Simulated assay, not measured.
Amino acid sequence: MQVQEDAVSDVVKRLRRAEGQIRGVIAMLEAGRDCADVVTQLAAVSRALDKAGFKVIASGLEQCMSGEGEERAADLAKMEKLFLSLA
């Protein structure tokens, strides 16, 4: 199962944004910024990664829903496991 092409662009944008946020957190730590500010930015990075992961999972679920029978049940179980790994 692959991520749908339209979702790839959105996920890449989200990951690049998170990458920039992580660089910002590193700079904050190196500059000795306040702990609360650093944690706030880490929470933002975490949300960005969660949203990227959800987009990938949602794309896969759309593909799984088009299957039938045992194949569909196996794919849904696999997607459930992936989804729960994000939690």
Rank of each mutant, 00 (worst) to 15 (best):
L61T: 02
V8L: 10
Q2Y: 06
C64Q: 07
C64D: 12
R47K: 06
S9A: 12
A74H: 06
A87Q: 09
I26G: 02
A73E: 15
V3G: 06
L86V: 09
V56E: 01
A58N: 09
Q21M: 15
V39Y: 02
R33W: 02
V25M: 09
M28F: 08
L86W: 04
A48W: 08
V11T: 11
D50N: 14
I26T: 10
I22N: 00
K55C: 07
I26C: 03
E71V: 04
K81Q: 13
A58K: 11
E5H: 01
V11Q: 03
L29K: 03
A74C: 05
A48I: 08
A77G: 15
L49Y: 05
G20D: 06
M1N: 05
A58R: 07
M79N: 03
A87W: 13
R33C: 02
F83N: 10
V56I: 15
A52N: 01
L15Y: 02
L84V: 11
V11I: 15
G53F: 10
R72V: 00
V25Y: 00
L29V: 13
M1I: 14
A87S: 13
D6H: 10
M65E: 07
R23H: 13
S46C: 01
K55V: 09
L82N: 08
C35I: 01
C35H: 13
S59Q: 12
A18Y: 01
Q21S: 02
E80F: 14
R16T: 09
K78R: 14
A7Q: 07
A58D: 11
G53T: 07
S85T: 10
G32I: 06
S66M: 05
F54E: 12
L29I: 12
D10K: 12
Q63E: 08
T40R: 12
Q4V: 01
V25L: 11
K78Y: 11
V25A: 11
L49C: 11
M79H: 05
M65G: 06
D37P: 03
E68V: 10
A87R: 13
E19N: 15
